[in-house]
């Protein structure tokens, strides 16, 4: 199996091409600056994308549409609790993760006890989470503690700290998926839930843990993004709904489930940032930009999926 047959290669190639095209325009100026920005902003998309990938792997109909609301709620509550006081970063992190955990349990409870399709359950629940975020702070933007803001915007060994967090989580998810029993259970559930159940896989436990994981990942992203951009805003998660799904699909994971792909998520996250930057740099208007972004995404998905059939 050569490297070209790997479905994740296409998103990485596309990201590299977009990067090269921007540098072609600037004749190499700003190469480091651009790579740094791509890694910083790509990290947020990558972390929510990893969570969404786990849910999509569960099989047809599984998707978490409460990602933006979870990000907003976790960030709003965490930043409100920290209240810009120094030394409260850990408290904020714990609150954000706790919110994520609670949201995940609530989402899964709706799916399991009320037998709601996940799309409906998470969409309906997201209205509740968004309302809670509005109610708790009425959209006021509280600044993160300066130490936390410095961490979120800072760098270590030349790479953004948020990218290190994203890379670390990607490795954890990869190890869990490829090297642990739980990962095998998840893939088996996604390929055929009934067969997996008959084979003795605790299917409902796997689903519950997956919905909790995506919510915790979203909450962590919300916490980091709010710390990075100077506060939580009510609309901060808006663009991460489609983004989280797009990076999974562009990354080469199967939208039908049962087949996931960790490196592709990172490649796609970088690509999604670079393609917009590229079209902006070339001066494309909003209409042209959206059409071209859509066309390029379709192209990558086709390239990735036909390769897989042949392999």
């Amino acid at each position: 199996m050569t490297v070209l047959t790997k479905p994740w290669i296409w998103s990485c190639v596309a990201a590299a091409v977009a990067y090269a095209l921007i540098l072609g325009l600037t004749s190499g100026r700003g190469a480091g600056e651009l790579a740094y920005a791509a890694l910083s902003f790509g990290a947020f998309a990558a972390i929510v994308g990893l969570g969404q990938m786990l849910v999509i792997t569960l099989g047809p109909g599984n998707v978490d549409l409460s990602v933006p609301a979870t990000m907003t709620l976790a960030a709003t509550l965490a930043l409100k609790a920290m209240g810009t006081d120094p030394g409260t970063a850990m408290l904020g992190l714990v609150i954000a993760l706790f919110v994520g955990f609670g949201v995940g349990i609530a989402n899964y409870a709706l799916i399991y006890f009320l037998r709601l399709p996940p799309i409906i359950a998470t969409l309906a629940a997201s209205l509740v989470y968004q309302s809670l975020a509005i109610w708790s702070n009425r959209g006021l933007r509280i600044k993160p503690p300066s130490g936390l803001a410095d961490f979120a915007t800072g760098r270590f060994l030349g790479l953004p700290n948020v990218a290190w967090v994203g890379l670390f989580l990607a490795i954890v998810v990869w190890v869990v998926l490829e090297r642990s029993v739980w990962g095998r259970w998840l893939l088996a559930t996604g390929q055929n839930m009934r067969a997996a159940r008959l084979a003795g896989v605790p299917v409902e436990l796997v689903r519950a843990l997956t919905y909790i994981s995506v919510a915790v990942f979203s909450a962590l992203t919300g916490y980091l993004l709010a710390s990075f951009s100077g506060g939580a805003a009510l609309n901060m998660g808006a663009e991460y709904l489609l983004m989280s799904i797009a990076v999974v699909v562009v990354g080469g994971s199967s939208i039908a489930g049962g087949n996931s792909n960790v490196p592709g998520v990172w490649g796609a996250a970088l690509f999604m940032f670079l393609v917009v930057s590229m079209l902006n740099s070339y001066g494309a208007g909003a209409g042209v930009r959206n059409v071209l972004t859509g066309t390029i995404i379709i192209g990558i998905v086709i390239a990735a999926s036909t390769r897989r059939v042949r392999a």
Binding site: I22, T26, E33, A37, G231, M236, S277
Partner: peptide
Amino acid sequence: VGSVHGDWAQDVAQKAVAGVLPSL
């Protein structure tokens, strides 16, 4: 010399500007 969409949101604007700045 450059035009980006920031969606009236600080984080979106920051991301869009960071992406286009190297070419400006």
